[in-house]
């Protein structure tokens, strides 16, 4: 089954064999190269402690990026992820006292509704997703600010914290949850009719429509998935920092999009995958983690991250499929 999945999209490029394989394996090569580079510079990098820190740092980004993967493959974009994460974190933190671990339900629910709203305005109202989610990016953040008045909501419920930011057999629970989310996302993308339809809509919306695919439903569903996963990401983030703050998740959309793109899913839609996003999320996190460990100036870190993002797209983009590069 594994070998069949990538064959859906093009398997032969116009470029040489070498370039073709580099394009496909670039994310994993980059990740390995980063690990080797950082490990050779710092003895603390390749330790179990650091590994579990990296895991914890990655989960929130990864969970949100999985949702974004579906959105981007369907040919759209979701800029509101950071704000949805903040709303969900606020809901989780506020209800953690009364509901304990079950605060996950309202948190995920509020994320799902936020995503549904994005999707419906986009698909039924025919407003470009970039504009819809740019608007809700601001509006959802506004809701958080209105209710918190800028003050953090602290989480004191111990069961909640133990469940979502504790460890089982030394592995962070959040990482275990994320593992299952990755698994489910992988199966949905590669082995369900819905996954196929997402790819079809991103690859050719008009073709899909005329072939009888429920294009509007697919478009709404990818935003629902993105919202749902942002709900979960918000909960995990609030548990990690023991609080929901008004600024939580600010600028997250850029890291999320970067993770998806570095993982080899182009913004043009139709192609890409879940596996790439997992690698992309780790690349983004390890880059920060490693540079912090080496004591790289934080401003320089930004420059490096930007360069890595553009370099990744430079290598992985399949120019034969894009007529004009905008």
């Amino acid at each position: 089954m594994e070998t069949q999945a990538p064959s859906i999209a093009s398997t032969t490029g116009n470029g040489s064999r070498w370039k073709f394989s580099l394009r496909n394996y670039f994310p994993i090569l980059l990740l390995v190269a980063l690990i080797i580079a950082f490990a050779s510079q710092s003895s603390r990098f390749l330790t179990f402690t650091n590994f579990s820190i990296v895991l914890q740092q990655t989960v929130v980004l990864l969970v949100a990026a999985l949702g974004m993967t579906f959105v981007i493959i369907a040919g759209s974009i979701d800029l509101s992820v950071g704000s949805i994460v903040a709303i969900a974190a606020l809901v989780a933190a506020s209800l953690s006292d009364s509901m304990g671990i079950w605060a996950i339900i309202p948190a995920v629910l509020v994320g799902t509704i936020s995503g549904l709203l994005n999707g419906v305005i986009f698909a039924k109202g025919k407003v470009p997703s970039f504009m819809v989610t740019l608007g809700t990016l601001v509006a959802y953040r506004g809701i958080v600010l209105y209710f918190t008045r800028g003050a953090p909501v602290e989480i004191t419920n111990l069961t909640f914290l133990r469940t979502y930011s504790g460890r089982t057999a030394d592995i962070p629970n959040a990482a275990i949850i994320t593992f299952f989310v990755v698994l489910i996302a992988y199966v949905i993308y590669n082995h369900t009719v819905f996954g196929r339809e997402v790819r079809a809509v991103g690859g050719g919306e008009r073709v899909s429509l005329l072939t009888g695919i429920k294009v509007d439903r697919v478009k709404i569903m990818v935003f629902v998935i993105s919202g749902l996963l942002c709900g979960l990401a918000g909960l995990l983030q609030s548990a990690r920092v023991y609080a929901a703050t008004a600024q939580l998740g600010e600028g997250l959309e850029l890291d999320v999009i970067a993770a998806v793109v570095v993982g080899g899913t182009p913004l043009t839609g139709g192609v890409g995958g879940v596996t790439g996003t997992v690698l992309g999320a780790f690349i983004i996190t390890i880059l920060s983690n490693g540079m912090n460990m080496l004591g790289v100036d934080p401003f320089i870190q930004n420059i490096v991250k930007g360069v890595v993002l553009v370099a990744a797209v430079f290598v992985t983009i399949d120019r034969s499929k894009i007529g004009i590069i905008k």
Partner: peptide, 10 residues
């Protein structure tokens, strides 16, 4: 190619 097929797909 614009309405009948997604030409990048298998």
């Amino acid at each position: 190619t614009g309405e009948g097929l997604i030409v990048d797909f298998a």
